[in-house]
Design a protein around this nucleic acid. Structure first.
Length: 600
RNA sequence: GGGGGCGUAGCUCAAUUGGUUAGAGUACCGGACUGUCGAUCCGGUGGUUGCGGGUUCGACCCCCGUCGCCCUCGCCA
């Protein structure tokens, strides 16, 4: 092995040399991170993926090849270097305690300049000082920064752990088409023109959904894929036009089979990938339960402060706002912020009030719990026993802050759900180093689209209803539940799945109910409906967003921070300058004409 | 598609609210320096103030348009 190594090639990495290598002769390769010149001696910090090692050079050291000092003297940041030298132990205050390699340095004997670098457009520092636009344009330089290196390494470790777990559980890694068919439901598709079928287009998959279900019909029994998905919608900090899912599907299962399997997978993946230990089991909430307790369908379980219904108490209240809300069919609910009375001044509460009114609430009623009762905006309506009754209902104790919203239920849940997160954030209860997972089950099957004036899928066209034998989807439509579930961590929706409809007849009736006619069914999903005619097994699965999981696990700002080559919010690749123009010949070959106005 | 923020030296920012030669730190270049570790000290190079137009005696600053980046609502079955 050693004989195959060229003289300039590294024997060690920049992260592994320690005091036990003292006296050995080694070769390191890496980038110059920093250089410090002192006349007769100089120091360099040499960086690679594994760490940073200080290189020392003295004009007069025995064994130094002539010219070594002069070469190092003229080099600068980001030049790529091979250094042969001797490992020397550092003593006393020469030790750098901030580095794993800080107890040694490499005394340079001979150097080879592997590549000289122009002054980079921004400095390669752990803390990103250059703006993100510039860093995306020179992403290959940004990738040299330790936070990105860490993200890429841990992401890979996480994905590998997931693969191992699924492999060990008899899942088969199956590739599904990237060139597939557009379906009008759901997100906007990315399209690819076909040359040999002029005027026809492939679509890039929004997810491998249909194909994984066909894998079940195909008897593959347990499928998984680390799958790239594409959606042409406007972007956010947590959305990219292409993103990665852990996609899986299982045959002959019920909800708990999928949930148990995925729970084990997530625990294994976060442990192996990031050293995170998740508390088990993950609580499982019914959709309506989650809405009632947390005011949202993706509860952040890092703290309590659940929504409490005080409608019964409000009914008999002298406080008109409460009484009126109840009398007009509304509800009154509140949250109890433990020990928060001191932390919110009148001005602070005014800000919370502005926050909830911005969400559609008419106002925010508040009360600080004291030893004697309550004080605050509603105190005069809650003197004596009434106040004690309210405090008891809210589970309050002296020093707590009670916040109430009275309105129609939908508004109350939204306002308090968001307020809970905001107050929790202000009180420091949303620690990014704490991780709490849960499941939300039995989502409504349909939701009413006001604009289009019709019902549509709330989740996924293939999710089975809780009641297999349901006959009429038009009756109490908003009460119909599907066997859909979401995986949630720290208030982020990280995965979504369901038990599927595996019977042609039921699937056809769901489509019909939504006004998707026979012809359209055939055109869009014909092959899936056909497949079920030939024996589709009961099955279900889930897809989890890899980018979001990694972002959360590493405590990063957005998913761009864990994607090697991300795009901007305008779905543009600043580095590759994609999308770009194509030649008239290419357009002609595809029989495509652009109607876009030429850009100056 | 709507709302908000930002755009000044390679990079990060400032410029007394419209005033005369647009500054600082850092990077870079040169010099000094035998123990630094974001070295220090001395000196130097570096500007189409995103772009186009307008108002004004005078514009980084005000107005209109435009481009780009970020956040957000809509959207994302």
């Amino acid at each position: 092995m050693a004989s195959k190594r060229s003289s300039w090639q590294r024997t060690h990495t920049c992260g592994e040399l320690t005091a036990r290598h003292e006296g050995t002769e080694v070769v390191l390769n890496g980038w110059i991170e920093n250089h410090r010149h002192h006349g007769q001696i100089l120091f360099l910090d040499l960086r690679d993926r594994y760490g940073v090692t200080q290189v020392f050079c003295d004009q007069e050291v025995a064994g130094t090849v002539s010219g070594t000092f002069e070469t190092l003297r003229r080099l600068g940041a980001e030049d790529v270097l091979s250094v042969r030298g001797t490992v020397r132990r550092r003593e006393g205050d020469k030790i750098n305690k901030n580095r794993s390699t800080g107890e040694i340095e490499l005394v340079a004997l001979q150097v080879t300049v592997l590549s000289e670098a122009e002054t980079p457009p921004f400095e390669i520092l752990d803390k990103a000082e250059a703006n993100e636009e510039l860093r995306m344009q020179y992403r290959y330089l940004d990738l040299r920064r330790r936070p990105l290196q860490e993200a890429m390494q841990k992401r890979a470790r996480f994905v590998t752990a997931i693969r191992n777990y699924l492999q060990d559980n008899r899942f088969i890694d199956i590739e599904t088409p990237i060139l597939t068919k557009s379906t009008p439901e759901g997100a906007r598709d990315y399209l690819v023109p076909s040359r040999v079928h002029p005027g026809k287009f492939f679509a890039l998959p929004q997810s491998p959904q249909i194909f994984k279900q066909l894998c079940m019909v195909g008897g593959l029994d347990r499928y998984y894929q680390i799958a790239r998905c594409f959606r042409d919608e406007d972007l956010r900090a947590d959305r990219q036009p292409e993103f990665t899912q852990i996609d899986l599907e299982m045959s002959f299962v019920e909800e708990h089979d999928v949930l148990d399997m995925v729970e084990g997978m997530v625990i294994h993946g976060l442990r192996e990938g990031f050293g995170i230990e998740l508390p088990q089991p993950f609580p499982r909430f019914d959709f309506f339960e989650a809405m009632e307790k947390y005011g949202c369908d993706k509860p952040d379980l890092r703290f309590g402060m659940t929504l409490i219904d005080v409608t019964e108490l409000a009914k008999k209240s002298d406080f008109k706002v409460f009484a009126t809300a109840v009398a007009t069919g509304g509800t009154v609910r509140g949250i109890c912020a433990e020990g928060a009375a001191e932390k919110f001044s009148r001005k602070g509460i005014d800000e919370l009030t502005a926050f909830v009114t911005g969400l559609g609430a008419k106002g925010l009623a508040w009360a600080k719990v004291t030893a004697n009762g309550v004080e605050g905006s509603i105190a005069k309506f809650y003197e004596g026993d009434k106040g004690k009754e309210l405090i008891a209902a809210m589970g309050g104790k002296p020093g707590d802050l009670l916040l109430f919203v009275a309105d129609q239920k939908k508004i109350v849940l939204k306002a308090l759900g968001d307020l809970r997160l905001k107050v929790g954030g202000i009180l420091g209860l949303r620690d990014p180093k704490v991780f709490r997972c849960c499941w939300v089950l039995n989502f409504p099957m349909f939701e009413y689209n006001e604009d289009k004036g019709r019902w549509q899928f709330a989740h996924n066209p293939f999710s089975a209803p809780v009641d297999w034998d349901i006959q009429d989807f038009g009756k109490d439509t908003d009460q119909i539940r599907s066997r859909a579930y979401d995986f949630v961590m720290n208030g982020w929706e990280l995965g979504s799945g369901s038990i599927r409809i595996h019977r042609t007849e039921l699937q056809a009736r769901v489509f019909e109910f939504l006004g998707i006619g026979k012809e359209q069914q055939r055109a869009n999903f014909g092959f899936l409906l056909d497949a079920y005619k030939y024996g589709g097994p009961p099955h279900g699965g889930i897809a989890l967003g890899v980018d979001r999981i990694v972002t959360l696990a590493l405590g990063r700002e957005g998913i761009r921070d864990v994607i090697a080559f991300p795009k901007t919010a305008m779905a543009y690749d600043l580095m590759a300058e994609a999308p770009g123009s194509v030649s008239a010949e290419q357009m002609a070959e595809l029989q495509i004409v652009s109607t876009a106005k030429p850009q100056p």
